[in-house]
């Protein structure tokens, strides 16, 4: 009788082990499916957001830029400004969403119309920016701001190549991390590195265009 029990036990354990292993695999599969889904979702969010902006209901500064189409540097810039506004508003959750969105728009940036040297630089910028944007999509707000600093540099370098039809301002906060810059459509200082803690810290460094 006890032999029968232990045999049953062994069979049960073998079953559990196999299930555990297959779970491990299916978890990975699930993850990759989720990954696809979130990509798709962010695509939807994207179009929604563009819509919100064109309505002019945005709570940050006016981002009434003429909307660039899919895969353009104007689309990246638009997403960047939205992300900046979320950080200005100390909104961690929104910045996460927008981090995922700008990762997608950077990834979709079409570089085919540039010279080979420009293509190489842009690809480099894109690779770097996507990584920082992905980190922003999954971090607390302090980390988001750290990554936003480098993302700002990437976006600035992108604009130096692609240009933009709007006038941008490079603003500079001398206090954050030994001095940090960001881009804005407006001269008005609204600091994304400190948010409400030090909203007015910063100065106009340069006008772009």
């Amino acid at each position: 009788m006890s032999k029968l029990k232990s045999t049953l036990g062994i069979v049960a354990i073998a079953f559990i082990t196999l299930t555990a292993v297959s779970c491990k695999d299916s978890k990975k599969e699930q993850e990759s499916i989720d990954g696809h889904q979130s990509e798709m979702n962010s695509g939807e969010d994207h179009s929604k957001m563009n819509h919100d902006n064109s309505d002019g209901h945005h709570d940050g500064e006016k981002t009434e830029m003429a909307m660039g189409g899919h895969g353009t540097s104007e689309a990246v810039l638009n997403d960047y400004f939205n992300l900046k506004d979320a950080l200005v508003a100390d909104d961690n959750a929104k910045a996460k969403e927008l981090g995922a969105i700008i990762a997608t728009s950077f990834g979709n940036l079409d570089v085919s119309n540039y010279t080979d040297a420009q293509k190489a630089s842009l690809k480099d910028i894109i690779e770097d920016a996507v990584e920082h944007a992905e980190h922003i999509s999954e971090s607390d707000i302090d980390h988001q701001r750290e990554h936003f600093k480098i993302l700002s540099k990437d976006v600035t370098d992108m604009v130096a190549i692609t240009g933009t039809k709007n006038t941008l301002y490079q603003l500079f906060c001398p206090m954050y991390d030994g001095g940090s810059a960001w881009l804005s459509m407006s001269k008005e200082i609204k600091n994304p590195y400190y948010g409400s803690k030090m909203l007015k810290c910063g100065e106009v460094q340069k006008e772009i265009n």
């Binding site: 029990k5 232990s6 036990g9 062994i10 049960a12 354990i13 073998a14 082990t17 292993v21």
Partner: peptide, 17 residues
């Protein structure tokens, strides 16, 4: 005793993965 045997078998079993 049975639980001990089960655990042991499981432990040995997962080593083959």
């Amino acid at each position: 005793k049975i639980i001990a045997i089960i655990l042991l078998v499981a432990f040995v079993g997962i080593q083959f993965i």
